[in-house]
């Protein structure tokens, strides 16, 4: 009978009328990010960093711009840790390259910006600000 398939299809859609909703009310309700989630800004740990620049060497798109200074004891210090989001592919190679696990993703996904300048930030400054707020 012509039209039987249409009615069967309608039954499926009507069946979902009272079913559980698949979506969440986004700004009010947020889904948790997974443990391995790659995204957001880089959370930098100044104490762990040894200034080896392996992260910048590992990056396929040169998204990391680092400045390292050497003090009188020949110890390396990070002066700036600039991450250009516009170039970043979120491939995780920088984080995997780090021998001391000094960087990780901050798992924030709400960092869309209106201006291009906002797509470049200094992870070192952000880390210091975060520490300043905590203390």
């Amino acid at each position: 009978m012509w039209g039987k398939g249409l009615i069967t299809g309608m039954k499926v859609t009507w069946g979902h009328w009272f079913g559980k909703k698949e979506t969440v009310y986004y700004p009010e309700e947020k889904l948790p990010m997974t443990e391995r989630f790659r995204g957001g800004h880089l959370a930098f740990d100044e104490e762990k960093c040894i200034g080896c620049k392996l992260c910048a060497i590992g990056c396929p798109n040169a998204a990391l711009d680092l400045t390292v200074s050497v003090d009188e004891n020949k110890k390396r210090h990070m002066e700036s840790y600039v991450h250009q989001i516009g170039r970043c592919m979120y491939c995780d190679l920088c984080i995997e390259a780090c021998p001391t696990k000094a960087i990780s993703w901050d798992k924030n996904y709400e960092f869309a910006s209106y201006f291009k300048e906002d797509m470049t930030y200094d992870a070192l400054v952000e880390a210091r600000n975060r520490r300043g707020n905590n203390e």
Partner: peptide, 14 residues
């Protein structure tokens, strides 16, 4: 099964 009910059986789709 749901897909088959929803579109594969649909006469217009066929």
């Amino acid at each position: 099964d749901e897909y088959n009910k929803l579109f594969s059986g649909n006469e217009i789709f066929q």
